[in-house]
Every structure is written in structure tokens, then in C-alpha cells.
Amino acid sequence: MDGTVTVSGFTVIKVFHSSASNSAQYTWWLKKSNVGNGINVTGIPVYIREGNLKKIFKKFGIIEKIKIYSLDGEKEQSHLPSFQQTKGYKQADVFFVKSSAIKSVLSMKYDDKYTVLEEGSAYKPMTDVWIKDLQTSYNIPTADIASKCAKFMEAYDLRKSEEEKDARKLADEPDEDGWITVTRNKFSHPPKAVKAHELKKLRKKKENAALVHFYKNQVTDTKMQRIRELKAKFEEDKKRIQEMRQQRKFRPY
């Protein structure tokens, strides 16, 4: 594959750990970012730092800033702790001072060898990443979260009670056609429920009341039906045994 490889708008480059490595570790996908003179890079492993990125991109122009963030973008702010294990790949936005750099970045060649971790360059060792993850997962600011949660629940309760009120109000007002929709909420006192054991008794009574096999022909019919079923099953089993015989299932040793 020669020259610049572009796949649906992305420029693809091969990235190597060091010049000694003989095969590419990653394929990075480059695109012009939506804001400013930025390049969006996807496929960055967790141990890469800004400095490593700088190494590759500094030759295209002066870099204003580099921002690394996780692949699925910034999560919306929530009152719950939204900690996530560091995993998978990240994205980065590389902002250049001049817009002219972008064009040359996007024409980077697939076959060129770009190295990120030359001797001496700093990267995050994975053990550090893991320890930090573990620490963050234990360091949840409970007091802060508790108050936020309490607020959320208050708001939630308020919302719910208002929804209910609205529903009640709506229930009493006729709509455009002049109809009043009757909802279940209207019944503050549902009709008295039949208790479970009473229901059982009732059912039993009903069962006994039904005339099962009252006529003689009913008796014969059921009997015949059952025998027919048995016969069918017998034939089926016979067939199964034939099959088993063909598979030599009856061979004891």
C-alpha cells in the first residue's frame, strides 16, 4: 500500500514503539477535528502521554496543546461517581498554531515508520495506571456524593409527586371531545379483594361441580384417547430404538 491511505475520511498511519520494533503496534486514525486547527487522533493506547504524541507531530508545525481523553468522549456530569477502569483506547486532539500543518498531517504516509517510545522518552508504566485506578476506585468522596444524591432524590420525589398531581388533574378535566379518561388512580378504594384461601375454596367447589365423565361415552372417549396417545408414543419409541440399533447403541462392549 503506497502513499497516504484514506479510509472514509480518516488518514491511517502505522505507529511503532521504537525504531527497533519490526512490526507496527497500532494503527492511528487521523481526522481534522471540529474546532480550531486541531487533528483528532484515535487508537491511542493508555500508556501514551502528551510528550509521546508531540514527538510525532512536532515536525508538522508548532503545537499549541494536546488533549487526551477516553474514546467515548467526555461523560455527562452525574451525581453518581462515574469512575471507569482505564482500558481500551483513547483519543487525542492535537492543536496546531497554524492551520497549514493540518494538511501535511493528513497526508502522512501509511508505509512510513512513526515511533512513539524512543529510548528515554517518558510513558506511563501500566502498573502505575493500575494502581491509580485502584486508588480512585476506593477514593470516592462520600460526603460530597451523599449531598448530591440527596438533592437528586428530593428533586426526583418532587417530580414524581407533581407528575401524579398532573395526572389527577387531567383525570378530572374533560379533553377536547369532552371525555374524561378514568385512570386506575381514581379508585382510592379498590373493590374488596377475595382472599387467597377463599379463592382456593371457590375454585375447588367449581371443579367438583363440573360433571367430569358424567356420560359413559365420555369415559370411553378419554380412555381411547389415552390409549391412542400411548400407542403413538410406543411407535415413536420403537422408531427411536430402531435408530439406536442403527447407531449400534445396544452394543454393550
Partner: peptide
């Protein structure tokens, strides 16, 4: 084969090849 959306494809340790004219 790489279709229109490729940002969701896992990009680690992969190489590009050409198969029947497609990347």
C-alpha cells in the same frame, strides 16, 4: 473489510491489507 464507519473498529495490533480492491 472496512465499511463506512470505522471508528468503532478496534485498532490495536492490526495491519491494513487489500482484498479484492477493498481495504
Amino acid at each position: 473489510p472496512l465499511k463506512k464507519s470505522c471508528s468503532d473498529v478496534d485498532k490495536s495490533s492490526k495491519k491494513l491489507t487489500e482484498l479484492e480492491g477493498e481495504v
